[in-house]
């Protein structure tokens, strides 16, 4: 696991067996070949992104004339000209649209899902188990199912094309996973803690804010990073529900795709810019990212 080894050294020892001599010899012999294969595979996974980065840092003329790998012999050709042009072309506004869509969505999903998850985990009400099973069922509903009905609904209430419309759509489709993840975490909170708080006469709101939310931090962090990346990287919802003034980066770039050949400078720098923040978040919070992924898929 990516993070377990980094974050919990104890686990490494638990997993590493005492190996007998024969296995060790076999490991040594096979080790060289495995190393080479793994280096090649690692390159295979690294090279495409590296290519995008180099292309984004070279002028259209240079990109048209030669492959990006020639950068190793001609590093002087690197330039940030593409990025300057990109920012001058109004890409900044789509960057901020992405932020204005992603941040409220993430906050809303966490808040609304945490409330529901707390109710599912620690409150009694008729039909609780059945309604939670419905949430589990909704986990994998394809987004396509809602595009047409919600578009008509938005047209009726006048929020078609706006950022609130995009945000609400994202929140709704983020909820099943969020409720599922948090509910499964909240049921693990020791009952004694909640009972003690209830005995002391604390209101449910107070228990939620003071006890459940703080204890749920690890799961909330996982959910937050997951939700953030999901919304930041979305294209389909933006394509349908965000008009040109409110479009996030993904849609802005998509509109340039038709002339791929002549737009490589804008596309490469835009695509690279759009993936910097996800990558930084990923490297900073990969532990939570992996946890969220595990909890979400291993049901």
């Amino acid at each position: 696991m990516t993070t377990a080894t980094a974050s919990a050294p104890a686990e490494v020892h638990a997993g590493a067996p005492r190996r007998n001599v024969i296995t060790r010899i076999v490991d040594r012999l096979g080790g060289g070949a495995v190393q080479v294969v793994m280096v090649l595979l690692g390159l295979f996974w690294l090279v495409p992104t590296l290519g995008l980065m180099v292309v984004s840092l070279r002028s259209p003329a240079v990109n048209g004339a030669e492959g990006w790998w020639t950068v190793f012999t001609k590093p002087a050709e690197l330039t940030i000209e593409n990025y300057k042009n990109l920012l001058a072309s109004g890409f900044t506004s789509s960057f901020w649209n992405t932020v204005f869509i992603t941040v409220p969505t993430t906050v809303l999903v966490i808040g609304i899902a945490a409330m529901a998850a707390y109710a599912f985990a620690w409150m009694d009400f008729p039909g609780r188990d059945l309604s939670f099973l419905i949430v589990v069922g909704l986990l994998i509903v394809p987004i396509q199912i809602a595009l047409i009905p919600v578009a008509i609904f938005y047209g009726g209430v006048g929020i078609f094309g706006t950022i609130p419309g995009v945000v609400l759509f994202h929140v709704a489709f983020g909820l099943p996973f969020a409720i599922f993840l948090l509910r499964n975490f909240f049921v693990g909170i020791p009952a004694s803690l909640l009972e003690a708080a209830r005995m002391d006469g604390a209101s449910e709101v107070k228990i939620f804010v003071r006890v459940v939310f703080p204890l749920g931090k690890p799961a909330i962090a996982s959910l937050g990073i997951f939700q953030f990346l999901w919304v930041w990287n979305d294209m389909l919802i933006a394509l349908v529900f965000a008009d040109t003034d409110n479009q996030p980066m993904t849609k802005a770039l998509q509109s340039q795709m038709r002339q791929f050949g002549s737009n490589v400078d804008i596309l490469s720098s835009g695509a690279f810019l759009s993936l910097i923040i996800p990558l930084v978040l990923f490297f900073a919070f990969q532990r939570y990212f992996v946890q969220g992924m595990m909890a979400g898929s291993v049901k």
Binding site: V55, Q254, M293
Partner: peptide, 23 residues
Amino acid sequence: FKLIVFMPMAVSLMAAGVIFRLV
């Protein structure tokens, strides 16, 4: 190695598409 192979998960499919148009 895991970080390298896992990294594309954080990248938007849009950006992955541009990456592979180039590839």
